[in-house]
């Protein structure tokens, strides 16, 4: 099997950092700015950035429905920080979660912390929380993968994974590895 092709939503945000991690893991990477860019993807990353800017960009480009169709067809998705917000009920409605934006406060409250995450063995992940959201509500079909102060900050529903923090700014690629596990499993089923 050839290496998978992973799209990174590139309307605004740290899409290049996600591209670097994915290339380190040996995948092909395509920046996604229009619906045509979604054709033939094996997986999709929605990066960090400003969720307001990204939401307006998704509307302008008509990307909402095509992304929902992609996930409905079983293509795995990873959303990080603003990407988690984009996946919630009030945005793309791909996951049965409700995000609380800027849940930890303004930039002066941004922080790094060790996060013990379900499905990732060994040392905890060093999560970078930048004006980060958390998961305020989630439905029964959602599995919480990690918590901070008793609040969910990582979750999975089917082949969709959302994390409130960043790991792509460093060199720990294990969260993206979870996405690639889903991608391989989805391709094996086809």
């Amino acid at each position: 099997m050839t290496e998978p092709l992973i799209g990174v939503l590139a309307l605004q945000g740290d899409f290049e950092a996600h591209g670097r991690v994915l290339r380190r893991l040996g995948t092909h990477v395509r920046e996604v700015r229009t619906p045509e860019d979604l054709d033939g993807l094996d997986g999709l990353v929605i990066p960090g950035g400003e969720s307001t800017t990204m939401t307006l960009g998704v509307l302008r480009e008509g990307l909402g429905e095509p992304i929902r169709e992609l996930t409905a067809a079983g293509v795995p998705v990873l959303g990080s920080c603003a990407g988690l917000i984009m996946l919630d009920r009030e945005h793309l409605a791909v996951m049965d979660i409700l995000a609380r934006r800027n849940a930890f406060g303004r930039q002066v409250r941004s922080f790094e912390a060790d996060v013990a995450m379900e499905g990732i063995d060994g040392a905890p992940v060093r999560g970078v929380f930048i004006r980060a959201p958390l998961i305020a509500e989630h439905g029964a079909g959602v599995e919480v993968l990690a918590e901070i102060d008793g609040h969910p900050v990582a979750a999975r529903q089917g082949a969709t994974i959302a994390v409130a923090f960043h790991t792509e700014l460093g060199t720990d690629d294990r969260v993206h590895g979870l996405l690639l596990d889903e991608v391989r499993a989805a391709r094996a089923r086809r």
Partner: peptide
Amino acid sequence: GLAEMLKGG
């Protein structure tokens, strides 16, 4: 990191 999130904007 916050500047990284502003990129492309």
